[in-house]
Design a protein around this nucleic acid. Sequence first.
DNA 1: CATAGTATTGACACCAAGTCTCAATGTCAA
DNA 2: TTGACATTGAGACTTGGTGTCAATACTATG
Lengths: 152, 152
Amino acid sequence: MSDIELIIERIELRGHRITEGRRRVIQAVLKQPSHFTVEDVLQSTRRVGRATVFRTMRLLLDLNIVCRVLLDGGNLHYRISSRGHHHHLVCNDCGRVEDFTGCDVEPLVQALAAAMKYEIDGHWLEVYGRCEACRLLRSGRPESQTTQVLSQ
Amino acid sequence: MSDIELIIERIELRGHRITEGRRRVIQAVLKQPSHFTVEDVLQSTRRVGRATVFRTMRLLLDLNIVCRVLLDGGNLHYRISSRGHHHHLVCNDCGRVEDFTGCDVEPLVQALAAAMKYEIDGHWLEVYGRCEACRLLRSGRPESQTTQVLSQ
DNA sequence: CATAGTATTGACACCAAGTCTCAATGTCAA
DNA sequence: TTGACATTGAGACTTGGTGTCAATACTATG
Ligand SMILES: [Mn+2]
Ligand SMILES: [Mn+2]
Ligand SMILES: [Zn+2]
Ligand SMILES: [Zn+2]
């Protein structure tokens, strides 16, 4: 079964209707790179209203079909995510993102919570750096030090 | 020396001029609760332009005089922060925030980075839950379960 | 098949958060 | 005191997102 059909099925299971607009938005989402904004999705969907695109993105977020990535600098982007709770390792140069789940931050969080007498609901962790490719590019080709593939 | 004079001094040290507008914005920031938006600051400063308030907030952020807190749900708020790198434990009910530095997440982050061959620049960690006061309120007075002091 | 009852849509106004421009003004070191 | 230059404010603009509401599309049921 194709990616889109699997997503459609999950939406149906939650009691939502399958419409042509939703199908188009999902198709656009599936074509995006590593991470993207709703504006990006909007620009690659035709014949779907702005509000519907935003509503569909919210639906996908609720269903954990996409997640949000907090970029270094505070911008929230969207990203396809099959898993539930996970974190991101973001390359600040090229925008590449790696998901990770084995972060073992939960015990630390629990200890902290006990000390503070908080009951914990959840946490958010993002890690920023430079991927191997970008690092090699920098050290090997000093003239390209200002290369910045990711805009913004 | 008062809080405001200390901040003024740090701004001067970085080669910025001290103006009445900046003084007013800082005074407003110092009067805010646990966390706030620029809009909140704007509403408690008179005779200072909107752009100047935003520019001053950015200056304070650059100087680590304020930091940003990512609330559960994705809103970024501002917060006074004397320390450099630190994290937040946020009560989702009353909006209380505790800073913490002893998070020991660095070793985990380094291990992850080594596995992924990333060079690490930094990380972002926020923890969400319910503070003791809010927890007691909930369990002891079931009729106030929907109490939500923090708007939004 | 008809149709009623929801769910969804899209146009559009609105909102929140922030940036940009540029002429006018303020600050401070000399 | 004054000149260089940093800062300001009004307001237009941008980006990301929500609320309204009449029109349209699904779908279950008879
Ligand atoms: Mn985790
Ligand atoms: Mn840390
Ligand atoms: Zn990279
Ligand atoms: Zn609380």
